[in-house]
């Protein structure tokens, strides 16, 4: 059963242009996707694609104009209170707290507002500040306005985790974080998913998304343009592996055997004087490609000096879909 279920979700905004004129902006034009329990699902798309709007609807901050959305089996419109008890949300990490309160005080205030007791809120705030690595930075005392962007992002994550929610909705959670902190947050997200929490994450860092996400939905102009696991997306959009092999003592028929054994899209052979560099573009699953290649090399008795397989990235898929036309590894 899906923990997050979105069906034909629609959202329109009315934007005022001048004094009387109004323009309707279609932020979401019927998007659908689902996320299973313990899964990390990434939503990708350019700025204004509708990612944050979707997160806000799932967090009950916004009401949709059409379609349905369920979190942990509860309708985000009709059972908003139930949904609020089950989600933790981190929106724009650069703001969202009282500047004159410290991180600790902001978290205690949030806990009380959520209905927790003062003693629990204090204890939980301390635990979370420690968890995200803010305790050592005197976050208990310094007001929020003195925080760096990285500290603000960590506090935002701490807030999202406050009620130990079933579902985490994280909008660009590592924005502005240094390398070490971003890695720490990624590790934390992965561990939370292993504990059974469902994570819906957005971002522009493709490396990060590819590292943590088990499934991806790509949105553009308010519609879903692709969804699936990163591996499925790469295959679905026909991206090619670039294989480069440096060989010595190559047999006469080796090139012919390679051509007949692999689904090649292109091939070039370069004589380097004593050694041969073969560059191939192969449309295949990585495991099958590696296995076939090893078998061929083993049978041919050639000496392998170097081998590299450059695989397509999620970024290639993203650029291909959002940038128009499928991008190929060359």
């Amino acid at each position: 059963m899906s923990t997050v279920l979105v069906r034909d979700l629609k959202k329109f905004y009315e934007v005022r242009e001048g004094f009387r004129k109004r323009r309707v902006v279609e932020a979401l034009r019927g998007i659908s996707f689902s996320v299973g329990r313990g899964e990390i699902h990434a939503m990708l798309g350019p700025n204004g694609a509708g990612k944050t709007t979707t997160i806000k609807i799932l967090a009950t901050l916004l009401l949709p104009d059409g379609g349905e959305a369920y979190v942990a089996g509860f309708d985000v419109v009709k059972q908003a209170d139930e949904v609020r008890r089950r989600v933790g949300i981190s929106l724009d990490v650069s703001k969202g707290f009282y500047p004159s309160l410290s991180g600790y005080e902001n978290l205690v205030f949030y806990g009380l507002l959520k209905g927790f007791s003062i003693s629990y809120s204090r204890r939980r705030a301390k635990e979370l500040l420690e968890l995200v690595g803010l305790e050592g930075m005197k976050a208990s005392y310094n007001p929020y306005f003195t925080y760096s962007l990285g500290m603000r992002a960590k506090l935002s994550i701490a807030k999202a985790l406050f009620s130990d929610p079933e579902v985490l909705l994280l909008d660009e959670p590592t924005l502005g974080l240094d390398v070490e902190s971003a890695r720490m947050i990624r590790k934390l997200i992965t561990e939370l998913a292993k504990d059974g929490k469902t994570v819906l994450i957005t971002g522009h860092n493709m490396y990060e998304i590819e590292e943590v996400a088990q499934s991806v939905t790509i949105i553009n102009n308010g519609v879903v343009v692709a969804s699936g696991t990163p591996e499925q997306l790469k295959l679905k959009f026909g991206l090619l592996y670039k294989v480069s092999i440096l060989l010595r003592d190559v047999g006469k028929d080796f090139i012919g055997v390679v051509k007949s054994s692999l689904p090649l899209e292109g091939m070039s052979v370069e004589d380097l004087g004593g050694s041969l560099r073969i560059t191939m573009y192969v449309r295949s699953r990585r495991e099958e490609l590696v296995q076939t290649l090893l078998n061929l090399l083993e049978r041919s008795n050639t000496k392998v000096l170097d081998i590299s397989i450059k695989e397509p990235t999620l970024e290639d898929v993203y650029v291909g879909l959002v940038g128009g036309g499928v991008y190929r590894v060359t």
Binding site: A59, L61, G96, F97, Y110
Partner: peptide
């Protein structure tokens, strides 16, 4: 301005 609204709206 400081955008604490979402924190309030998501809690109560």
């Amino acid at each position: 301005f400081i955008d604490v609204g979402p924190l309030i709206l998501e809690s109560t």
